[in-house]
Amino acid sequence: MLELFVEPFVKFEFMRRAMFGCLVIAAGAAPLGVFLMLRRMSLTGDVMAHAILPGAAIGYLVGGFSLSALTFGGIIAGFVVALLSGLIARTTILKEDASLATFYLISLALGVLIISIRGDNIDLIHILFGSVLALNDGALLLLCCVTTFTMLSLALMFRLILMESVDPQFLASLSRLGAIGHYSFLALVVLNLVAGFHAMGSLMIIGIMLLPAATARFWARSVGTLILIAFLIGAASSLLGLLASFHFSVPSGPAIILTAGLMYLISLFIGREGGWISSNSKNPKVTQ
């Protein structure tokens, strides 16, 4: 047992670094994922994660495989897309889901193309799926800074973001701060996606935000509990995923996301808040 679960972390520094990185990512991702889900913005989050790719790719083209170049490019691209997608949905006839889907496709194609201009497939795989087993000091420091900043910002703006999520019209009638809350929230999502994509890859990072949040919905009712459970699920998936990747020699990013996916599937059946079994065995929830 000990051998299976503890030894890899004791023996290998890269496993400890990966564990630390993943736990930090899970802490920042949990509250953001919960709000993305509750605001019905899961797809938006997904698109922003992909939108980072061309930015990171241009950073890669200019600066090579360096943390700062990739991060800087990713942040710029993420912010641009966060602003653009809202703008396009408001000002053209395209519905938001269609405009998001176009962004998603264009970004992915563009990103892959740019990386392949200069790099090889190994670099491409690193950027798409992350290299959680090769996190250097810089990447860990970036993760810690972004997560700390996220926690502080969310603590400060919790009511603003909550009200903007529950009843935007009401908040707008009271204050002009709603837009600030909305865009600050999107900015935090972008920051976390960019900091996290070094570890999990631009295709996988959004998974550690969305899957634990969606899973938590089957276990909790209040926003606070949802965030706590989402963090626990994210942390557990990270550890188990890392171990699975270690023992079975599979890529660690996908292993972590699949573990989170497995937890989601299990909760889908046995979750006590509207899981499949609870909805079919009891009387349906009274809505009166």
Partner: peptide, 29 residues
């Protein structure tokens, strides 16, 4: 308003939604 934009699925209690009425006194913080 006639059609409130309230997100009915949002996990928030009656007490919390009512407390929002104090925004002018409490502000965001």
């Amino acid at each position: 308003p006639q059609h409130s934009t309230i997100e009915r699925d949002f996990p928030i209690s009656v007490q919390e939604i009512v407390t929002m009425g104090l925004w002018n006194e409490l502000g965001p913080f």
